[in-house]
Simulated scan of single mutants.
Amino acid sequence: MAFFAYLITDGSYACTTPGAFAKHLGELFAAQKIDYALYRDKSNPDYERFASVFVDECHMHGIKAMLHRDAALAVALGADGVHLTSTQFDAVAGAKAQGLFTVVSTHSAVEAMHAAAEGADAITYSPIFESPGKGAPKGLEDLNETAGKIDLPVIALGGIVSPAQISAVHAAGAAGFASIRYFINSAKESFCSK
């Protein structure tokens, strides 16, 4: 698997209407090299409707669409995969049985090995660099050691906002990088106006 880019959304990607969301996603996807994208917005009460728009926009741009936590919704909306939290190890087998590419969030080597044992397709490992509210960074050496302990792709996450950091995690053994801020910071304009 080639080194890949994984966009993760949060509240900073929020738009007031699905139409505005689709427009801004389309612009972002056209301007960036993105292989996978995760729709993650815990505060959106209309998550399902916006998730449907997200999946459609991803597919129009050749991007693998991932949904957060909910394998059943991912299947219903035709998403390519699901990104499970570090409390959902027991959901890996069910997600895989439904044909979903299954990523698990991990924050320690023990969690990474647990995800691998459960049959996950990949993990995110975080935080690698300083990231607001995410605790002490793991650092590149820890990333390298963890990637060497498991036989599945490790996606570096946390505080990755520059090309230099992307190169550093690649050199440390990550199969890809994930970020929220990198993709918005790299765009010429902000996402949706509040």
Results as ranks from 00 to 15, higher is better:
residue 78 G to F: 00
residue 102 T to R: 02
residue 41 D to N: 14
residue 38 L to T: 11
residue 165 Q to P: 08
residue 115 A to P: 00
residue 92 V to S: 05
residue 35 D to W: 02
residue 69 R to S: 10
residue 48 E to D: 06
residue 9 T to S: 13
residue 167 S to T: 15
residue 50 F to R: 01
residue 160 I to W: 03
residue 133 G to H: 11
residue 42 K to C: 04
residue 154 V to L: 06
residue 42 K to S: 07
residue 148 G to L: 13
residue 13 Y to N: 09
residue 105 S to H: 01
residue 58 C to F: 04
residue 55 V to F: 02
residue 120 A to F: 00
residue 94 G to V: 03
residue 109 A to F: 08
residue 194 K to D: 12
residue 151 D to R: 08
residue 164 A to R: 09
residue 47 Y to P: 00
residue 75 V to H: 01
residue 65 A to Q: 05
residue 87 T to L: 08
residue 170 H to S: 11
residue 127 P to N: 07
residue 98 Q to V: 00
residue 35 D to E: 10
residue 20 A to P: 01
residue 90 D to F: 02
residue 132 P to E: 13
residue 22 A to Y: 09
residue 128 I to W: 08
residue 6 Y to H: 12
residue 117 A to F: 05
residue 98 Q to D: 07
residue 17 T to I: 08
residue 123 I to D: 03
residue 148 G to W: 10
residue 103 V to T: 12
residue 127 P to H: 04
residue 19 G to K: 09
residue 54 F to V: 11
residue 134 K to F: 03
residue 33 K to P: 01
residue 55 V to L: 05
residue 144 N to A: 15
residue 182 Y to T: 14
residue 6 Y to S: 12
residue 17 T to S: 12
residue 71 A to R: 03
residue 42 K to R: 15
residue 77 L to I: 00
residue 114 H to M: 09
residue 8 I to R: 08
residue 188 K to Q: 13
residue 68 H to K: 03
residue 184 I to S: 09
residue 30 A to W: 06
residue 5 A to R: 04
residue 105 S to E: 02
residue 139 G to C: 14
residue 104 V to R: 00
residue 101 F to C: 12
residue 10 D to L: 11
residue 190 S to E: 13
residue 70 D to G: 05
residue 68 H to Q: 05
residue 6 Y to P: 04
residue 69 R to V: 02
residue 38 L to K: 06
residue 135 G to T: 02
residue 56 D to S: 15
residue 173 G to L: 14
residue 60 M to F: 02
residue 192 C to P: 08
residue 90 D to L: 02
residue 49 R to W: 07
residue 94 G to A: 13
residue 32 Q to K: 10
residue 41 D to M: 06
residue 92 V to K: 06
residue 7 L to R: 07
residue 132 P to S: 10
residue 74 A to C: 07
residue 113 M to E: 12
residue 34 I to K: 06
residue 116 A to P: 00
residue 154 V to D: 03
residue 147 A to N: 05
residue 30 A to F: 02
residue 139 G to R: 15
residue 81 G to V: 05
residue 9 T to M: 10
residue 189 E to M: 14
residue 153 P to F: 15
residue 118 E to A: 08
residue 75 V to E: 02
residue 25 L to T: 00
residue 161 V to K: 07
residue 175 A to H: 04
residue 94 G to W: 02
residue 4 F to K: 13
residue 20 A to F: 05
residue 133 G to S: 15
residue 48 E to T: 08
residue 133 G to M: 14
residue 125 Y to L: 15
residue 96 K to D: 07
residue 6 Y to I: 15
residue 24 H to V: 07
residue 121 D to K: 12
residue 3 F to N: 11
residue 84 L to I: 07
residue 28 L to E: 09
residue 81 G to N: 09
residue 105 S to D: 01
residue 185 N to T: 13
residue 7 L to D: 06
residue 20 A to H: 10
residue 138 K to E: 01
residue 57 E to N: 01
residue 144 N to C: 10
residue 39 Y to E: 14
residue 34 I to E: 04
residue 71 A to D: 09
residue 82 V to C: 02
residue 79 A to S: 00
residue 137 P to H: 11
residue 94 G to L: 06
residue 121 D to S: 04
residue 177 F to N: 06
residue 141 E to Q: 06
residue 46 D to V: 03
residue 139 G to S: 12
residue 17 T to C: 04
residue 130 E to H: 08
residue 90 D to N: 09
residue 93 A to E: 11
residue 138 K to S: 07
residue 143 L to E: 09
residue 31 A to R: 09
residue 71 A to Q: 04
residue 110 V to D: 05
